[in-house]
């Protein structure tokens, strides 16, 4: 197909953006518009589908076909759009509550099928639109309006959820990391099959400080690890710490800045087991990983579907009467 030259501006909508001032969603909007422009498709081929929640307002703010649907069902609706017209670039915008709680089943099965959806899950660890109840990613013990004594729910780790389901593309980014997160989204855009990107995103009214520690220039290099395919797993302000896999057990090895010891693992995004281990890293024991955790090639659902159609031979142009006649039709005169 012809490559269409569009820029991020072509995806900007004229509607007023109604997120709270300072919301992490503004940055993500910007990043996704850039990633979309890189896909090179004609404008009408883009469709953005969302459920319910703050993030799900997204379709109004990009100038494409959009469907702001019902709570939790974005993946299900998007699957119908993609399967009926595989040429479309179908983006699903969801949140931690929409995508992992009420919509968890559809998320899980979309990933299982490897259907070509670009799923971006905005993780602010709270139900924000309903004004502050605990979500499935709210950290254990957090006091919210629905958990005044602290939550007793073990939280989901969205990226690990996707890796565990053998999702063929899994990445995690942070809203404020413009270049890094845009790069992840560009790779997601280019991926065939299901792409799942978790973006940690602050919510000014409810989880304003949630990710501050990860953004603090003083600490962030010690608390975050950027994983990159083919590169050693190194982090730290002085790039002096590395991840070593001792069998299936991960350990942190401190070393003198400069040369990276050979024991330090080199990241392999095609390796599902490594992706599982790395996506489970949580502070304070380990740095929080960001980057592309998993990228694998596997035929997508829509490819398999239309390959079956091609294999049986398209008979759509047959006469209706032929089509309706079974093997045991009879003629009455």
């Amino acid at each position: 197909m012809e490559h269409t030259k569009l820029t991020a501006k072509d995806f900007a909508s004229t509607l007023p953006v109604k997120w709270c001032p300072g919301c992490g969603d503004f940055a993500i909007l910007n990043q996704i518009q850039k990633a979309m422009a890189g896909m090179g498709l004609p404008h009408e081929k883009y469709t953005v589908i969302s459920g319910i929640g703050c993030s799900s307002r997204f379709p109004y703010y990009v100038n494409t076909y959009g469907f702001h649907s019902i709570h939790g069902r974005a993946c299900a609706i998007a699957s119908g759009v993609k399967l009926s017209n595989p040429e479309l670039a179908v983006w699903v915008i969801t949140g931690d509550g929409d995508g992992l709680s009420i919509g968890g089943n559809h998320m899980m099965h979309s990933i299982r099928r490897n259907i070509g959806l670009k799923i971006v899950l905005f993780n602010n660890r709270i139900y924000a639109l309903t004004k502050g109840q605990a979500s499935p990613t709210t950290l254990m013990g957090a006091k919210t309006k629905s958990s005044p004594m602290g939550t007793i729910d073990y939280p989901f780790n969205p990226a690990r959820f996707a890796v565990g389901l053998d999702c063929t593309f899994v990445a995690r980014g942070i809203d404020t990391d413009m270049a890094g997160t845009t790069a992840l989204l560009e790779r997601a855009a280019a991926h065939k099959g299901t792409a799942f990107v978790e973006i940690l995103q602050k919510c000014v009214p409810f989880t304003d400080k949630e990710f501050d520690v990860l953004k603090d220039p003083e600490n962030k290099d010690d608390l975050l690890i950027r994983v990159e395919h083919g590169k050693p797993l190194v982090f730290g302000k002085n790039r002096n710490k590395g991840i070593v896999f001792n069998g299936l057990k991960a350990e942190i090895l401190e070393f003198k800045s400069g040369g990276v010891p050979s024991e330090v693992a080199v990241y392999d995004e095609t390796n599902a087991e490594m992706a599982y281990l790395i996506s489970g890293f949580q502070p304070p024991e380990f740095p929080l990983p960001i980057g592309v955790f998993r990228s694998a090639e596997k035929p997508s659902y829509e490819e398999l579907y239309y390959a079956q159609v091609a294999a049986i031979g398209d008979t759509r142009d047959n006469e209706l009467e032929t089509l309706l006649s079974g093997p045991d039709a009879w003629e009455t005169k």
Partner: peptide, 10 residues
């Protein structure tokens, strides 16, 4: 929902 999505897509 998939059917509604497909209807949206024509």
């Amino acid at each position: 929902c998939a059917s509604i999505g497909a209807s949206f897509a024509g």
